[in-house]
Every structure is written in structure tokens, then in C-alpha cells.
Design a binder for these strands. Sequence first.
RNA 1: GCGGAUGUGUCGUAAUUGGUAGCCGAGCUAGACUUAGGAUCUAGUGUCGAGAGACGUGGGGGUUCGAGUCCCUUCAUCCGCACCA
Length: 1142
Amino acid sequence: MEYNFTEIEKNWQKFWSENKTFKAEVDKNKPKFYVLDMFPYPSGAGLHVGHPLGYIASDIYSRFKRLNGFNVLHPMGYDAFGLPAEQYAIQTGQHPAITTDVNIKRYRQQLDKIGFSYDWDREFRTCDADYYKWTQWAFTQMFNHYYDNKTNKAESIESLISEFEKNGNSNVNAVCSEPEIFSASEWKQKSENEKQEILLNYRIAYLADTMVNWCSALGTVLANDEVKDGLSVRGGHPVEQKKMRQWSLRISAYAERLLNGLDTVDWTDSLKEMQRNWIGKSQGAEIHFDLSPTLSKGKGARPEYMTTDAHTWLGVKEHVVENRKNSTEAEAFLWKNLKGKKLGYKIRRQHAIDKFIADFVCLEKKTIIEIDGIYHDFQKEQDEHRTQILTELGFSVIRFKNEEVFANPEKVLAEIKSYLDAKVLPFGEDLGGVGFTIFTTRPDTIFGCTFMVLAPESELVDKVTTTEYKSAIQEYILETKKRTERERMADVKKVSGQFTGAYAINPFTKTEIPIYISDYVLAGYGTGAIMAVPAHDSRDFKFAKHFNLPIIQVVAKAGETETDPQTWEDSYDSKDGVMINSGVITGMTVKDAVNHIIDIIENEDLGTRKVNYRLRDAIFSRQRYWGEPFPVYFKDGLPQVLDLKNLPLELPEVDKFLPTEDGQPPLGRAKKWSTEEGFPFELSTMPGFAGSSAYYLRYMDPKNDKELVSKDANNYWQDVDLYIGGTEHATGHLIYSRFWNKFLFDLGLVCKEEPFKKLINQGMIQGLSEFICTISGHKMGTQNITTLFDFYWLNGIKNIVDCNGNNINAEVFYSAEIAEEAFNNIAEVTEKCKLLKFNIPIYYTSNHKLVEFSKFKLWRDLDSPSTSIFVCKNGYWIVKGNSVEWIGDQNIKGDFHTIPVVEKMSKSKYNVVSPDNNYDSEGNLIQEGVIEKYGADTLRLYEMFLGPLEQSKPWDTQGIDGVHRFLKKLWRLFFDNNGTFQVSDEPATKDELKILHKTIKKIKEDIENFSFNTSVSAFMICVNELSDLKCNKREILSDLIVLVSSFAPHISEELWNKLGNKESISFAKFPEFKAEYLVENSFLYPISFNGKMRFSMDFPIDATIKEIETVVLNDERSQKWLEGKAPKKVIIVPKKIINIVF
RNA sequence: GCGGAUGUGUCGUAAUUGGUAGCCGAGCUAGACUUAGGAUCUAGUGUCGAGAGACGUGGGGGUUCGAGUCCCUUCAUCCGCACCA
């Protein structure tokens, strides 16, 4: 009986599916094991041979665990929302739900052919409303929680509100956007909207203004990698930096826990390193720098709004309160339009300054606004006197008459605003006093800080820049604004910057140091400002050199003395060394100095110890259609979330998948996109990572309509024991889902803080592309072709150009080996010529040769069918439509070589190999699949045989025959020469048992170490050896087939069944390894002389070292190798080696 | 620039973790069976050498009785991060 894999595989796949063989249920009598593959996005191209690599590995492991008595959860589903489907929808008008469904069906069909042991009853898609209900629900939970630094977990917003009501927020230590201290009574006085506004600063899911890449032509925010040279990669539309109100997730609150959690999981070091890198923790200090000259009276003495002393305040307090009550009509009118930062500046009224009371004051701009009524007319002289004093204090006064206010209030407000906008305080007092704060990880080098640099986008820039430098600064900012963050990163080498005119004072050296702005400082990191230490930071060094700024060495390499930094080629950035020129810390090591200086900084109130993270909050809005709608509506412009009972909020239908005319996201086109009360819903949708962040939890309990996952299911399945997938998710999905899980953990909804216990990154299977060569600008007239190439034949390649015809309608291709030569010769004549190499579909080639000339031709020029010439070494092919003619030596028809290149397997490179048959749009077979040709078991084994799982390798079917032969050989063990199934019930021999148990041991160890490639060769060795012994003993084959079943389940089921078993082999028991079968009674020792192996000798296992030594030394071969010398030493390692040293 | 990984026949790879380098498969060569072979089987196949033997795990050095494996150094390739203060 032949090994008919097609039949066998079809039958068993049907059997598994009908019998739900791999259905997993909570079973508390069995230990659980959860094996998960990373969520696939079902692309239109279907599966290629690279995708199943990880799936096969996880499937082998799942089946292995089942055989070992575990209750295995092994599910599969689809990450179905996403951009490609939507782009396709925009192009074709097809609803993304339809294309996604088609793609998923194709995926499923392909997956089914490979024989995976998934529990298909748990399958779901992220775009199912039943599923995204829980994505939306999780979002509402994030909205309803804040991160408390005291309990170090997420806590409910209700508890925060009740704390506000009791004590205000001064005792609250929460992760928060803009802390502003208020008391309980102040909280209670706030309007509902004001309260909501404040709460948004605390919520884990929050709405805030964020800088984004906005592309108005595409109507969406773009990620950095979607923008190049200020244009969108797709379409080439201009992209601008824009502040937009976006949903974000406060993932930064979890930075420390995300970092620490890495120590508890079994992932590869490289992956953990990537995450650590992404989180980017750095420890250092925030240090306050005063501006020079300092006008403030002292640091940290009083809040800035207290602009008078306590004594005076008590004296004027009554007047202030009185005035506020009895404000004039004009004042009241103005106040209505000034309060609450209506002009963009905080304005206070009836505010005491020195011993005066100002009508209105803007402290950050040191500006007083006076309304002169009749009352004031009597006091004109006094007012002038008062103005004088206030001016001395640094305030300026603008005045308006009552009548002005009434006659043209708009004009008055506009004047106030433009006055405030224009006013630049020379010494930065409006920064909240007297200077600004920087973050550094090297506070020890502060004595070497000789200048400061601000990020161009920093809010501080406007405030420090002196009038003189204003235009230069603005010019510089404009320049940098044009470039995206990405571009800035790209040309690191270019040094640019601009002096602001302002100086700060180094708090330790007390010297005045200039303040610059430069785009090498990022607004988003730290405080957007740095202290520059050119001697010990290469970027600062370059900057100092460029602008000729002083460089002071403060760290010397251990054992070296001070040198002149002016002579340096580069800075000394290392933390190895001893402090010099550094006041009290001179002589300390860098490590000690860092700690010591921070202590001083804290004691003297110059700053604080500080930990900084690179991890930023995740922007969660997309102006897109094909994603989860936010369960959010807006009431008075403020967001409210829907209750669970109103979820899911289903994605509405729209007429087009494009933004609306007025630039709203596609959901703006939905007919009724508002609550029943008429409050509008959010128009953005969630990003790709939303749906994939908690899917592993949902698999535990996929049909539950009451909760994401039941307590029962979660307590049983707990976490993913083995997670297999590609590295591409290292910093995206794997950070987000860890965050998401930790959040749910804080809420007590899941029992494990880390979701993925062990994680393996399978290597990529690359494609083997084929390139064809042609030369641009070099086409020839058809009528010349024959003569041309006869000529070419006679004269060699270089004469091709002599016949450069004028009727251009033939394209010439060159076989790889002559392309270069041909090109070189053509280039002599026409300089415009270029050697072109481009990808061609690999299925027109075979063994790196073009074979399907006419098919290639058809593919190549659909638009202009013409003649093509394929120049080979000893002639050429002329191809016209279906006619292919060889011109040249008829005895040796030329091979037309293409150039093989290993690249990523991708549709655009035409190098995709799918596991099953590949048909064109008309249904013609264009590429035979491995599954059809060899069967799924061969595919599974071969993918594993290719090499270590983690390693990337190009797909190459050379060698697949060997694996297929192995399966046939295995099959033959069960049949006699006539093809009749025949298994002997005789007891196995010692040798047979030894072979079997050697294999059991090896397979068990290999699977546990995920070393599947070596298991496959172990199987081969085993079957080879059994074949040599002509072994057909049931005792041996029965165990062997169980071993194989994890790898090649179909053939195993078939043979298992033929052995007379009624149940699926999945319910068999993994054979037990018995060491006694491997016990040998002798060992063949390799005998080396001075470490070089010369011959080997057999000794009984219980021979003593003494006995062995005597026998070996007396052997005549030993005498020969010793060359008559006496051995100095004889090393005998039992059951290992014998080495004789002489 | 920083971090990580890898480097072994013609190719994919293996090596009991410091103990006979090249298992298994492919390819190639020769042969058997056969009407035929993309079937099956047998033998050979690291390099040099007629041979004995010598050399051989990117290069150089070291530790060791013994190194593909450990240490130092250097080169190459791949991947990740990258003005992160």
C-alpha cells in the first residue's frame, strides 16, 4: 500500500474537525497548558510558507504537552481591524468587512490544510462586535481609573473625587498631566465642566492636546514612519506638525512596572533588551538654573502670586474683598471676558501688589490693566506715582477708560491680548519666577556646564529670548518646524542652533552661561532643556566647537591628568574616571560624585533626584473607519463614556471611507452618530493594537457575554505558558498588552500580572527573489534584430550598439553572466544607459533560469505587447507573444540566467511561496504548493528541519525530498514487500529497544528545548536504523509513531489506526524513557596522544582505570605513536576519552 | 555611535555543553535493479597527499592533558536602538 498522503491528510483533518478532537474545556483534574501564536492579521496575500513556521512549532509543543497529560489550550483567531483593508476599501469602494472576511476564509482554509490542533470553537475576530465590546469596555475602565503612585496601581476615579471633596488634591500623588493645587472648598466651587476638565488630567484613558503628524489631504494623523521629507509616503501629500486633541493611554504610569516585570518572564535577552530600551529609564536629577541677572528675591520663598508681604496683605485684604464685591460695571464686564484664561493668560483681579491694589493683573507678563472710571480721575496724580513704583518692580501698566470698555469691548480685549502677546520680559521672570529646570543623568559634571540649550519647540524659548534675538530665534524655529522629527534624527551630524540673548547662572560655579536653542534637544524628553557639558557629551562638544563655546574638563580618566580640551577630537563621555575642577566633589569617582552632588542639590533646594522614562503615553485615536469606535460621547464638549449595558457601540455604515468635506474622520459621515439624547459620539476609532491587547484573555472564555473572561476560566488558564511569534511585535503589541494586562490586574479582573510566561521569536523565512537584467534607454527596432544579433554573434557583445535602431519596440534582456559586460560596452556609447535589475515572479524561473519566456513576456508588458530579446551566452531567444524562437547554436540552446537574491518574502517582490497551490485570478495553477506535492506532514517536518527555530533562513525546497523520503521509509516499516500491512507481535530485541529509547530520550529533550530540527534528524536516524534491522515489531513501532505524531500527525493517526487503535493518537501517552535499555557493557574509547586521536579500543564498562592504562600502553599501536618515549601522563576519563601525554 | 546575535564541507545544519569535528538531509560521483524514473537500494564524498600522514570550525594570541565550545584581540555579516541629556 502506497503512502497516499493526500487521502490520509484529508481524512484525518475531517476526523479531527468532526470529532472536535482538540476541544479544550476547564478541567480541574488536569494541569493546564496554554500555547498561543501571535495574532495574525489576515492580509490579502494569504499565508506564505514563513507564517506556519511558528504555528508548526507551537502545534508540535501543544501535541507533545497533550501526550504528557496536560489540558492544552491552543486557540487561533484574527486581528481583523487595520489599515490595509481600509486602504483597499478606499481604492475599490469595497467594504473592509467584506474583504477581511474573504481574507480570513482563505487563511482558515490554508491553516486547515496543515493539520493544526487548534480548538476552533474558540476562534474569533477583533472586528466582531461581540469581541470589540470588551475592547470598548476596557477603554471605559481606563477612563474611569487613574494611576495612584501611593498604592502603585490603578484606582477608581470615584475614590479620587471623594478625596478631592474631602481634602482637595494636595495629598494626592497620582500620575497626572497638569497638576494644579486646589483645596476641597475650591473643588466644590468648580463647575461640573471644570471638574471634568481636571479629571481628564488624571484618567488613564484621557483626551489631551498632542503634537502629531497631520496630513490634511489624507485626513488623518500619520505615524512617523509614514512621513518622509515632509510628505506622506502614500500619495506624497504635505504633512504638518499639529497639536490635536487626541485620546491617549497613560501607559507611562506603568513604565517602572513594565520594566521590572521583564525580570519575571522567560523571554529572550534580545527581546527584553528591546523593551528596556523602549522604556528607556534613566536616573539623574532635575536641576534649577536661575536666569541672569536674577530679579527675584529668593528661591522657593513664596508662591509667585503672592506679590506683596504678609503684613501689607492683611492691611489691604479687606479692600480687595470689598472691591471685588463692588466692582464697577466696566470691571465686571471685562472680568467676564478675562477670567479662566479666556485670552490665553491667567488674569487676576483686585490683586494686591506691593501696597497697591491693581484692577487686573497678568503676573506671568507682569502687566497691570487699569480701568479709569470717574473715581480715578480725582487721583490721577497718585496713579502716576503708583505707576512709577510698579514700573520699578518690573510691572507695566496699560489703562482703559470706562467708556472705551463699553463702547468697544472687543477692541479693548484685542488690545489687551496683543499687548500681552507682544510683551517679552527680558530676564525670563515670567517663567514662574527666575529660571528653568533641566534634567540630566550626569549631575556630577555640572561644574563643566558652560552653556544651556533649549528645544526649539519648548515653551521656554519665547520667554527667555531677548528682544534683540527675537527675529533670529523665530527664523531658526521656522526652519526646524519644516523638518519632521525623523528627519532631524537622520542628519545628526549637522550642528545648528541659535543664541537667545539670555544667560543663566550655573548654580555651582556661579558663572553666567549663554542659553541657546538647538534641534538636538528634544522637547518631548526630560524638560526640553539641558545643561550642556561639552567636555563630557559628544553632542554638546560638537555644538561648543561649532559656536566656539568654552569647554571645561571635569572628569579625568583614572590615572590620567587634566589635558586641554581645546585639543580634543571628541568629548570624554565615559563614566569611568575621577572628578577634577569640581569644587567639593573633586577627587571623587564619577559614581560617588553623582550621588554626592544630588544630595547637595536636594539640600540646597536646587533641584531633586529624578527618574525619567523615554516611554510616552500611547496615542490612541485614529481618524480612520476600520477600527473599534470609541464608547464615548460628548456633553458640553466634554467626553463621557457609555455604560457596559450600552456596549458594544457598533461601527456604523458610511457612504465612503474617506474623511468628510470639512475634514472630520470617516465616522463623521455616519447618519445618526449620537446618543439617543443627541450627544455626538467620538469620530475617531481605535488603533490596531487596541483589539490585540487582551485577546489572549478572551480565548479563555470566548463566548462569555457577561464579562471579558470569567473568574473561573481565568483562574484555571491563568496566563500564556508559551507564546510564539515574530520579533516585529517586540515594542508594539508586547508592551501594550503587558500594560493592558497590568491594568486589568490592578482592577482584580485577572489573576496574573504578566500575560506571557515564555516567549519565543521564530526566525523569518526569507524569500529567494529572482532579478532580471535589462539596460534602460536601449531598445531596438524590430527589423534590425536579426542582423543586429547575427552581427553581435560574429563580433561579440561590444558591437551591439552599432545597430542602435530608431524604431523602438523591442526590449532586450541579458542573461546574468553577460549583463555586466554588455552594459559596460553600451555605456561607452550612450551615457544615459543604466543597468536595471528588477524582481520577476519566481515561478517563471527554475534553478535561477528564466524558463517561462512567453508568460514572463505577458506579465512584463500588458500595455504594449512587443518583441523581446533574451541574450544568452551562445545565442538569443526572440519572444513575440506565444512564439519563442532560439537564434544561435541549435545544439546548445542557451540558458537565460537570473540573479537570485535573498530578501523579505513579500508580494511586491514576487517571491512569495505559499504552502498550497497558487492560482492566478483566472484560476490557472501558477505554482504547485508543497502541500499538494508532498503533503502537510512533509511541510511540517521540512519547516522544522530547516534549522533552529529562532534563526532566519531563506526558503529553499532543496532537501524537501529527503524529508519526504523519510516519511515513506517510516511508512514502509509497517508494510511488507508486497505492500501489505504487517506488524509483528514478537518481543523486541535489545538492539531495537535501544534504538527506540535513545530516540525517546532525544525527542523529549529536544522538544523541551524547542530544538525541532535535531528531533527530525533523530527520527531519521531511528527509522534508518530500524529499517536496517528490518524491524516491524508492534512494541517498537507503536511507541515510535506516538513520538512522531506531534510532528507529522496525519501519517501517525493513520498508522496508529492501522495498529488497531480506535481513539485518536492525541489521546495516547508519550512513551516513557527507560534508561536501562541504553546501558552498555562496554565503551569504545578514543585513544589520543598529546590530544590527537589515533585509534580506538573497546573496554568493559567496569574496567578499572589501572587495567585500561596497562592494556592501552601495552598495545603495539601505542608503542608506535609513543615513538619510544615514556608517557608523562595518562588521562583516562571513564566513558569519555583516553589521552596519553608524552 | 550603543546593544545583541552569528561565523563549521558545495549547501541547510549537528556536536552528549571542555573529550573521536562534520551527525542528519541536500548536492555531487560511481554502481545495482528497471521498458522507464523526479522510484528504490549500495558505496564514496572537508582540504592537500600516490601513500604514510599532515592540515582543518572567519583571522591572531592565550588557558588546558585536550578548545568549534572558555578568555583576550581582531575582522566580517545580520538584527535592534539611536541626538533620550
